Simulated scan of single mutants.
Amino acid sequence: MGDDPIREWILSEGKATQITGIRSVGGGCINRANRYDTDAGSFFVKTNRSIGVSMFEGEALGLDAMYETRSVRVPKPFKVGSLPTGGSYIIMEYIEFGASRGDQSVLGRKLAEMHKAGKCEKGFGFDVDNTIGSTPQINTWTSNWIEFYGVHRLGYQLKLARQQYGDSLIYEKVILVIKFDQAFINILVKGQRLVKNMAPLFEDVVIEPRLLHGDLWSGNISSDKNGEPVILDPACYYGHNEAEFGMSWCAGFGGPFYSSYFEVMPKQPGFEKRRDLYVLYHYLNHYNLFGSGYRSSAMSIIDDYLRMLKV
């Protein structure tokens, strides 16, 4: 590739003969985003001048995995590469958004169809690590969901909090809620008590690895011109389907969404008791990304579980 690999790809593999316009579109706070208009249609391009290709590679693999389920609409990724001046880019399908976020009941059904179709035999995790916001998200394949969630979700966020804030109080309280890997056993004096006390939360629950968007909040949900839901900017991995609702506190999901979802993926016993366990991951991530404003919300969830589990 030469000085402009984006332009070169569009004019070769993108099947365009000319680029008729480039304009900036909303791309969030991490990346720059542009719409490239051509005689072969439009392309959506995100660039980041300060990071390598791994973040966009993770996004592309997630989009591909969701696209292959033929359920909820996602933009199809075409190309990930490095910029000659440093940084990276991703080229994907451009979707013209509609005026609203669309029908919540349709989104609920389509999301459930994605979870149902996206079953994985390898276990819990993903082929690559990716990011949740700008935080690394570790996706090492693990056969047991509670271990995966404890080590690579809550555990990883707690380590970040301890490094960033030296917040031993929040760390010590959360370690009572879930069992971590063997490296933490010396710290987790009460680990064995925890295993016994966790059982009521997952009693009679079948946990299968299902493809998750991973970061489903209102900013990553839209609709196309026909009103069909579109989901964007994933942090994909294979996990317990209920973990998809961890960002529900800023997604605006209502009754029609959940009713439609559970028609396809039936609600399992104890769903309400487990819901905040998945919210906690995202509160901890916001705590690490944005500061102490999220600390009290995380602590409130932790305290509630400690009372519930009587540990």
Rank of each mutant, 00 (worst) to 15 (best):
L212A: 07
V189Y: 11
V151S: 14
A16K: 02
K159S: 12
I91Q: 00
V53A: 06
E13C: 02
Q164L: 15
H115N: 03
R101F: 06
C29Y: 13
E228D: 14
G108L: 01
T69L: 14
W145I: 06
S259D: 10
L111A: 02
T85I: 14
A117H: 08
N285W: 05
S50P: 00
A161Y: 00
N220Y: 09
T85L: 12
G291T: 09
G227N: 12
Y156T: 06
N285G: 06
A235W: 03
G81Y: 05
L284Y: 05
E263T: 08
V128C: 02
I91L: 01
G27T: 14
T131H: 11
H240W: 00
G270V: 00
Y294T: 05
Y165P: 07
E13Y: 01
D303M: 15
K46E: 03
Y287C: 08
R35T: 03
A235G: 14
T20I: 10
L201F: 05
I95K: 01
R35F: 06
K179V: 09
A40N: 15
F253Y: 06
G219F: 01
S42A: 15
L61A: 09
R23F: 12
K273N: 08
K273F: 06
V177C: 08
H286L: 10
Y294K: 03
K46Y: 13
K122S: 13
P77A: 13
G118M: 04
Q18A: 13
I132Q: 02
E263M: 03
R153E: 10
G219T: 09
